[in-house]
Simulated scan of single mutants.
Amino acid sequence: MNNRQPEFYSSKSIDFNEYASDFLFEKLQQLELINLGKINIALSGGTTPLPILEILKTKKLNWSKFNFFMVDERVVSIDDDSSNFGNISKSFFEGITSTRFSMVQNGISFSESIAMYQQIISNSVPIGQNGFPQFDLILLGMGDDGHTASLFPSTLALLEQKEFVVLNKVPQLSTERITLTYPVILNSKEIIVLVKGERKKEIIEELYTSESHNFPISKIIQTHENLKWLTD
């Protein structure tokens, strides 16, 4: 159990997207200073990060030092309008010189894509003593049901302890998602969670005041020792 007090950073009266992009810029600057080699960062999908990343790409960094990975993905082609990688590419990747890796490769099956992505992670991200990769930073979000990455309530991926990446069946959405697993997320050096909206604030309050909930993100906040909340 993590006994550290939670760290909250709020935009308050400042525009959330501007505030979050400045916060992340300072974080990436710090990583640039302390890392001699490549810096490995995993980004979550969804709509919340897109305007933040749109601003972040205009900041002056040595972007070639950064490798960007995806935390989760929909089971669609990269060209699909709902592709997390595709949407982040338009908002962010296409404006910087960083290396970026998609969970999905067009022309092969999703299971083959997952195997390839897992191999890319093994080749690019340092592996810790526990056998799992250690990202320098993972950027997460949180849904109205308390899911994070594509770790949804009552799904099998919540139980995965061996694989880095899995295809997770999500019956409540009648679909499947690709996601990093708990062991990989929990092995990250740092986690930042981006959240907006009143419902998210209610969930955060419940996370820290009640044990009678079924929020997948609770395992992360209870375990990880370097987690920060970035809220509006």
Rank of each mutant, 00 (worst) to 15 (best):
M1L: 14
R4L: 09
F8R: 03
Y9K: 12
Y9V: 12
S10M: 08
K12G: 08
I14M: 11
I14H: 09
D15L: 02
F16W: 12
F16H: 13
Y19A: 13
Y19C: 11
D22G: 05
L24Q: 03
L33K: 13
L36V: 13
G37A: 09
I39V: 15
I41N: 02
G45P: 05
L50S: 10
L50Q: 12
P51N: 09
P51K: 07
I52W: 10
L53K: 08
L53R: 05
T58R: 02
K65R: 12
F66M: 09
F66I: 11
F68N: 07
M70S: 14
M70E: 12
E73N: 07
V75C: 15
V76Q: 10
S77D: 14
F93S: 06
F93V: 02
T97I: 01
R100V: 13
R100Y: 13
S102C: 09
Q105T: 13
Q105Y: 04
N106P: 02
F110D: 09
F110E: 05
S113A: 03
I114N: 06
Y117M: 01
Q118K: 08
Q118C: 08
I120C: 05
S124T: 15
G128F: 00
Q129T: 15
P133F: 00
D136M: 00
L139A: 09
M142Y: 03
H147D: 05
H147M: 04
F152G: 06
P153H: 13
K162G: 01
E163L: 09
N168Q: 00
Q172S: 15
Q172E: 15
S174E: 15
E176K: 14
R177E: 06
R177H: 08
Y182Q: 07
P183H: 01
I185S: 08
S188K: 03
K189T: 04
L194Y: 04
K200P: 08
K201E: 14
Y208G: 09
N214M: 00
N214L: 04
F215T: 04
T223E: 06
T223F: 00
H224W: 00
L227S: 05
K228N: 11
D232T: 03
